[in-house]
Design a protein around this nucleic acid. Sequence first.
DNA 1: ATGCCAGAACTATTCTGA
Length: 257
Amino acid sequence: MKIATYNVNGINARLPVLLRWLETSRPDIVCLQELKSPHEKIPENAISEAGYNAIWHGQKRWNGVAILTRGLEIEEVSRGLPGDPEDEQSRYIEAKVSGIRIGCLYLPNGNPAPGPKFDYKLEWFRRLQQHAQDLLKREEPVVLTGDYNVMPTEKDVYKPERWVDDALFRPEVRTAFKELLDQGWTDAIRKLYPDETIYTFWDYFRNAFDRNAGLRIDHFLLNPKLENRLKAAGVDREVRGWEKTSDHAPVWIELKD
DNA sequence: ATGCCAGAACTATTCTGA
């Protein structure tokens, strides 16, 4: 079972790249973020012709998350992160696929910090912690994956000193991420590669990809039921080098059946 | 501090991203 997460930065602008990647990588389950598309404009037919079922939570212009599966049945559990009925942003969708519960999330960026956007990020993080705690009470395997917009440690940033005041790296969000892990979640990439420099995002400016000036902000968190099933994990780095690509690369894990 | 790039939206300029 191969599960992937990919911040596409606009699903319509990214469609050729997305389809090419699906064909080469062939993940069984895919979590997408930053669809930047209203519900009715998601390219449903193209996804279906590529052999994937899909559920999604779109939004005009911003955000948007989706779960795709290669022929597997998707049972949607919820859309929207619990804890704030006023929150209109499409940043969370959860489903059950093949006995695995999958939460697909797009955590707020939070810049500029401090400020209202940073407050929203921290509040969203608190709600995520609460929901994650509830999920841990379950007996079933659970994956919480997506764009967390957090570099967990200095190893996850090309130049940590430049990012200390940024909403993706400030102590508050690193602490929040650590608290999440301390609940009992495993960071899949770090479990398999504790010391390697691994990035999942390179910005479009200043030849960041060529200079490998990257960040690790897309993560897979596994509950204890899944930890022992983790077989492999990686980043499809080459996709970041394709024409008209996203600023993120896809990240994936493989689980024992 | 800001620009550098990229995508989307009531098409030209603004907002957002990380």
